[in-house]
Design a protein around this nucleic acid. Sequence first.
DNA 1: CTTAGGG
DNA 2: CCCTAAG
Length: 370
Amino acid sequence: MEPKHDNTAVDSFLGLGMENMGLSSTMDEFSHGFDFSFLPDYGGLNSCSTQDVGAGLKFEILDGFLDEVEEVEDIYASHDLSSIGNHIFPETEVKKNVSELDGDPYGLKNNRSSNSPGISGSISESSKETAPHAESPNQNASNERVKDSLDSNESEDDNKPLSTFIGSWVKRGKNRKKNLSNTAYSRINSSGERMSCVSYGFRPRKGPMKKYMHTSTENTFSDDQLTSSEKEDDISVTKTSRTRSDRRKHQRMWTVDEVMKLVDGISHFGVGKWTDIKNLFFHSAAHRTPIDIRDKWRNLLKASYKDMHNDGQADERRKSVACSIPKDVLHRVKELASLHPYPFSKSSCFIHDSSRSRSSAKKKKKKRRS
DNA sequence: CTTAGGG
DNA sequence: CCCTAAG
């Protein structure tokens, strides 16, 4: 292979070359049992890419970028993979099998949502999140790495105000036995403040979702994912030398994208299959336990009903941009709500006003099974 | 372990 | 979010 070390190499690195790189490496790792010949032409995979990669990968010039290259690889791998995945598993065909591809199990993301962060979003996302990955050399069967990056398709941050994280722990007074025994203790034992930068505040959900993930991968990933918020937490904690009194999981604002995934999940699995939804649609979301998801759905329903009672009144009370739920999503929520009622029977939620008497019937329909 | 419900 | 009770 002739290393063409002129502009071409650089160009291809910065441009198409990257794509090819990511793709080719992806292919290397994934072509083990597969015949990708049916895949669409990914821009001269064979012709220029291998060459450029061969040349480019030497990277005398780009030595310093190697780290980033890894990320980039991941990023592109993720994209290529997702597109591949969509080709391999067209829509309805495979359900669980796709689970590992996550992010966009049914290719839903593509159709919907001007909101869901497209490529750009994912890129910033991934680069942010895979970065820590590159540092730990061992723990990546490249296989898993790719899967990770797939997961990082997750739209973690749409618009997460950092203040959210900082503020959230402040308002927690109660101490909880469970939490105390879990997190706080470990922290104390590990000599309190000094340690705090590592483990404080991370309360792993008790059961790692083992079904669809290969343990180490997801865990490390979630750590990475939490990194940002964790840092916030740590800083605040060490600064104030917070005691273990407040141990509430950081309240993370639900992004529109997440909400949409939730809606998707429900429309695919039905209400009540929250573990399934979690696994498929929120597999990469380290937080968002099935319970969280259910709670969110509960809230969404509430919101939708509220909205429908305000008939037409575009209520802008939810001023925070992150919170406001787009109308279309709200509509879908309503549809789903009428489709399969959420089983909360008691009076608790929802406004009980006069108009509810008849209309409530639609909520109390039969529960749809899957 | 999962869900439903309630706080 | 958290917690608990129930399958």
